[in-house]
Design a protein around this nucleic acid. Structure first.
Length: 232
DNA sequence: TAGGCCATCTGGTCCT
DNA sequence: AGGACCAGATGGCCTA
């Protein structure tokens, strides 16, 4: 009867290699005659110090047998290592699948872009980072709006088009590059900078561009936050 | 065809 | 000891 071939990704140089490994595993049960105590490092291999000629011959034979079993044991050990590796690979695969599922969930929460481009992993993380920052900034502004007059409520100075976030910076450029025609490039820009957007310097490198698509969202959040705050 | 992204394998390290 | 996590390597697929 032919050995069963498992339908898994083959981590071996060739499929025959895997087949060999799996067959070895099946043969493992046949190696029951090799209990752990028969391993090469087993204390049972200690022999009497004064062998007679007859005993010496027996010892020779024993050694030969031991040698054979050691070769076989090495094969078993190799197989055990192999099966552990395969199990570890399986766990690692599952772990990465879980990670990807979490990333998909995150993508589904983030606002989608018109061209429906799927964010890459790194883009998703950076975009989420910026998005959270934008929302928290929005809440912060909403809080401020309760204390200050409504003037310049929605957009602080550094968020207004053409207004440099700090002297010498080039904040106007991020607005101009966020045109609809360059949505895909702006998409990548949205998620391109891994650093925190909370510094004025970040605005000089396209970080705040991610806020632009959310202007209306920002307004909604501020309104909601204001209403909510009224009932506090 | 080069480069980017991704899935997977793998060995090492840390943790329980 | 075994599992989780991590980073490097590798190969496949896709796109400009």
């Amino acid at each position: 009867m032919p050995s069963k071939v498992v339908d898994v990704y083959c981590p071996f140089e060739s499929s025959s290699d895997l087949l060999f490994s799996l067959r070895e595993e099946e043969e493992e049960e046949d190696c029951d005659s090799l209990p752990p105590s028969s391993s090469p490092s087993s204390p049972s291999s200690i022999t009497s110090p004064v062998p007679t000629p007859q005993k010496a011959e027996e010892e020779k034979e024993k050694r030969r047998r031991r040698g054979r079993s050691r070769v076989k044991n090495e094969g078993v050990l190799h197989t055990i290592k192999r099966t552990r590796r395969i199990k570890a690979n399986d766990r690692e695969r599952n772990r990465m699948h879980n990670l990807n599922s979490a990333l998909d969930e995150l993508r589904s929460i983030l606002p989608s872009f018109p061209d429906d481009t799927k964010l890459t992993k790194i883009e998703t993380l950076r975009f989420a980072h910026n998005y959270i920052w934008a929302l928290s900034e929005t809440l912060r502004l909403a809080d401020q709006s309760l204390e200050k007059p409504q003037k310049d409520l929605l957009l602080p100075g550094y968020l207004r088009p053409g207004t440099p976030p700090s002297p010498g910076s080039d904040a106007g450029s991020w607005m101009s590059t966020a045109s609809p025609a360059s949505s895909s490039s702006s998409l990548s820009m949205c998620a391109s900078n891994p650093s925190s957007p909370a510094t004025s310097e970040d605005f000089c490198y396209g970080q705040t561009e991610s806020l632009f698509p959310f202007r209306s969202l920002q307004e909604e959040v501020i309104q909601d936050a204001s209403c909510f705050a009224q009932y506090q």
